[in-house]
């Protein structure tokens, strides 16, 4: 029984069957990648996991509880954090404040009318936020505007914001989309480091084979809204069905 169990999920947008009968099981403390060509339904599936979309049929269970029908903030409070394709951060706030907000959300829940005490007196939250910045090598950027960060640093900050909540499942939506090779490699190193340091389950949706084969312990291949195969990376590389549906060319070249 995995920490995330997706059973018979399907989703239709008008005439388009975006997802048809998807089954997926993500085991705890693994890195699970979901790959597939454009339009395979990867993002639709992810949006069904975080409460942005509600599937037409099927169930999504996280740690034995259903996530369907819950709002994004409720799903986050259950222990699922999400990293977006383009980093979503609080651009108008300082880097430190960006990290303090998830700390407050983790401590106080979805809403707290904490309007009288000064932020600077919240020493516990402050230390927690400073510790994660230290961890992510971002201490020097602490007081600058988050919007002024480079794209790579924004990604790093977004990860810090997710990790400071100590999520049990981290969902990453194409974390290296649109990145230069060097940045991609940095992101891979960052994710490896996170994996080694923490007990965390990661589910990565990715396009870039290099990233997938560097990180994933298990891979699910989606094509036209249905899972083709699910296996370990080595097996996926040579799988004829995958080559046909997704790569369309010899595995050596594509990888």
């Amino acid at each position: 029984m995995g920490i995330l169990e997706v059973k018979n999920v399907s989703k239709r947008f008008g005439g388009l069957q975006a997802l048809g009968d998807v089954n997926l099981s993500v085991a705890e403390n693994t890195v699970h990648a979901i790959i597939g060509p454009n339009g395979a339904g990867k993002s639709t599936l992810l949006n069904c996991l975080v409460g942005k979309l509600i599937p037409d049929t099927g169930s999504v269970m996280f740690d034995g509880q259903s996530v369907l029908g819950r709002k994004p903030h409720e799903i986050n409070q259950m222990g699922i954090s999400r990293v977006f394709q383009t980093p979503e951060i609080f651009g108008d706030l300082s880097v430190l404040e960006n990290v303090m907000i998830p700390c407050f959300a983790h401590r106080d829940g979805a809403f707290a009318l904490n309007a009288w005490s000064a932020v600077r007196r919240q020493t516990g939250v402050r230390e927690q936020a400073e510790a994660i910045l230290e961890d992510m090598n971002m201490t020097s950027a602490r007081d600058i505007h988050a919007a002024a960060l480079s794209r790579g640093d924004k990604r790093r900050l977004e990860m810090a914001m997710c990790l400071v909540q100590e999520p049990r499942l981290l969902l990453l939506d194409e974390p290296t989309a649109g990145m230069a090779r060097a940045d991609t490699n940095n992101t891979i190193d960052l994710l490896r480091e996170i994996k080694e340091k923490r007990d965390i389950t990661m589910c990565i949706i990715e396009h870039d084979m290099h990233v997938v084969f560097s990180l994933a312990e298990r891979i699910t291949v989606l094509a036209q809204g249905t899972p083709l195969v699910e296996d370990v990376p080595e097996a996926i590389k040579g799988h004829p069905k995958v080559q046909e549906a997704y790569l369309g060319q010899p595995a050596e070249e594509a990888a």
Partner: peptide
Amino acid sequence: SPFGMMLRAVKSNQQRLNYTGVS
């Protein structure tokens, strides 16, 4: 206050705030 910081976060990026566990 932390409340004021959350309000500024609403202005800055409401989507991120929701996915951070805040309603």
